[in-house]
């Protein structure tokens, strides 16, 4: 738009009344074309995104849902519709129940620890006692675990936790951290906590740095001590970030696969079997792609519950 300076002294121009001007018959075709163009225009803009969403998300999801209602797809040339038989098979499988239990423990403990450790480190880094230079150095050190890919983390911790590894040497113990049925779930959860807390830390640190200093000043003037300032200023200010991050982390952690697969493979016995490893084994070890799709659909439903809360929370914020 071109902005023309308005002369405030000039009398306002009379607004033209919207009268329909008769269109000359010769140009009616071009008008119809332009009107058609205007109707199609928004669709043109949406088309690239819509098309990509369709090809990359909707089609695969619909296919997998379809597979979950047929007998063994892919290996079977002419799969038949079997109704909810696959769902009954998966839901009555004892290992599936174990996997749900393990996934819950793994996810809830990981997320709580991510939040607490992330918040603690973020507060330490945000302290006025820390100079800018050392803050930068510690930021790099603390964020390191997050920069490694799952494969590197798995190899690293397998070596550290091996019976002849560094951890046992330092503790003068001979524990089988990843191989003992009593310790394995705890050990993989610990590794996941180690790998995931920096993401919370960085986000919360950004949030902490955004809290206006005058809120703290006002609280101090009102006589609030450090603990009261934390609970009455810091936490309420961080609340939106904490809720979003927690919901996102719940979704991500419940789908963690690579780390578990590469450290324990779901074992020993099945103490670290998660929904993700359960599904993977169905597909790529037993080649039961229909059952694997069923399991994937069930995971999708669980994730959708979390996603629902996330979206609702985001909408409430907007």
């Amino acid at each position: 738009m071109i902005i023309t300076p308005i002369d405030s002294t000039a009398p306002p121009e009379p607004t033209p009344t919207p009268t329909r001007t008769p269109t000359p018959p010769a140009s009616s075709a071009s008008v119809r074309r332009s009107r058609l163009g205007r109707t199609l225009e928004p669709f043109g803009f949406i088309a690239p995104t819509a098309l990509l969403m369709l090809v990359l998300m909707i089609v695969p999801i619909v296919l997998v849902i379809g597979y979950s209602f047929t007998d063994n797809v892919i290996l079977n040339k002419n799969p038949e519709f079997v109704g909810i038989e696959n769902f009954v098979t998966v839901l009555t499988d004892g290992v599936f129940a174990t996997a749900i239990g393990n996934t819950l423990v793994f996810t809830v403990v990981s997320v709580i620890a991510h939040l607490l450790i992330g918040l603690a480190f973020a507060m330490l880094l945000n302290s006025p006692l820390v100079s800018n230079a050392s803050r930068a150095v510690f930021r790099v050190i603390y964020i390191l675990p997050w920069l490694f890919t799952a494969a590197v983390i798995a190899v690293l911790w397998r070596m550290l936790l091996s019976p002849n590894g560094v951890v046992n040497y330092l503790l003068s113990s001979d524990l089988e951290w990843l191989s003992s049925p009593a310790l394995a779930l705890g050990a993989v959860t610990f590794i996941n906590i180690w790998a995931g807390y920096p993401f919370f830390m960085v986000s919360l640190l950004a949030g902490l740095q955004g809290i206006p200093a005058d809120l703290y000043e006002a609280a101090t003037v009102d006589g609030a001590n450090g603990v009261q300032r934390f609970f009455n200023v810091t936490l309420p200010q961080l609340r939106p970030i904490i809720i979003s991050m927690t919901l996102l982390d719940l979704i991500w952690t419940s789908q963690q696969f690579a780390l578990i697969w590469l450290t324990t493979g779901g074992g020993p016995i099945n103490v670290t079997e998660m929904l993700s490893t359960f599904t993977y084994k169905l597909a790529f070890s037993r080649y039961e792609f229909a059952l694997a799709s069923t399991s994937a659909v069930l995971i999708l439903l669980f994730s959708m519950v979390l996603a629902f809360f996330y979206v609702r929370h985001q909408r409430a914020r907007d």
């Binding site: 019976p163 001979d174 990843l178 003992s180 074992g267």
Partner: peptide, 12 residues
Amino acid sequence: IAPGAFTMKEQD
């Protein structure tokens, strides 16, 4: 038998 058998792989 060497400890850690339950999660040991061929390369270990």
